[in-house]
């Protein structure tokens, strides 16, 4: 029956493609924007949490990101790219926070503790690979984890990571390689 699509669609806009939502939001449609917030807000929060660690700042960063997005939606040429555009905004805001935090504390290796990183070397034997990854990630040096998160969660290119973090491309490659190798080795240990 031709009504199948319609039947799945409880509130029509929830099912609209990114492009339609982005264009409507750029025209000032709050309802379309709300759908985008619900669709990508959780991913942005997960991402910001991985970069910043678990703390109050995550909420602020995600909120600021969406406010910026709302104001600048008109500059987004291709509405289909709204997801990566949003990820870029939240990345930038998260990195800004990290910089501010570092300027404030002035200690190179400050790192927000993540809850998974309880007792680093006490590993439950039954720990699942998911939990293992979460814990190893939390234990990575901050610069490595940030590169890895940008690459694997935000799907940045090496070049974009270098640009965002103000690092030479070779440094980014080195950090990512170290992160991957550490993760691989640790994952091997808990197979």
């Amino acid at each position: 029956m031709s009504g199948t699509v319609r039947d799945q669609v409880a509130s029509p806009l929830d099912a609209a493609a990114d492009q339609v939502l982005a264009e409507r939001a750029a025209d000032g449609d709050l309802r379309a924007f709300e759908v985008l917030v619900r669709r990508y807000g959780p991913l942005m929060r997960v991402y910001a949490t991985r970069v910043l660690g678990f703390n109050d700042e995550t909420d602020d960063v995600v909120q600021e990101s969406f406010i910026t997005a709302w104001q600048q939606l008109g500059t987004l040429d291709d509405g289909r790219a709204v997801k990566s555009w949003l990820m870029r905004i939240v990345s930038r805001k998260s990195i800004d926070r990290l910089r501010a935090r570092r300027a404030h504390v002035n200690i190179e290796d400050t790192d927000a503790p993540a809850p998974e990183s309880t007792a680093p070397h006490v590993v439950a034997e039954v720990e699942s690979q998911t939990e293992a990854l979460a814990r190893v990630l939390a234990d990575l040096p901050e610069d490595q984890r940030r590169c890895w998160t940008l690459r694997e969660l935000a799907e940045y290119s090496y070049h974009d990571i270098a640009f965002e973090l103000h690092l030479p491309l070779s440094t980014v490659r080195g950090l990512l390689a170290r992160a991957r190798k550490t993760l691989l080795r640790e994952m091997e240990d808990w197979r």
Binding site: L30, F33, V37, R38, V62, Q63, F66, I67, W70
Partner: peptide, 21 residues
């Protein structure tokens, strides 16, 4: 994240204005 209460959405929407568009 999806299990979180919905108030974060409201707080975002409360903070944007029609002005921009």
């Amino acid at each position: 994240e999806s299990l979180r209460a919905d108030d974060w959405v409201a707080s975002i929407l409360d903070n944007i204005t029609l002005e921009a568009h």
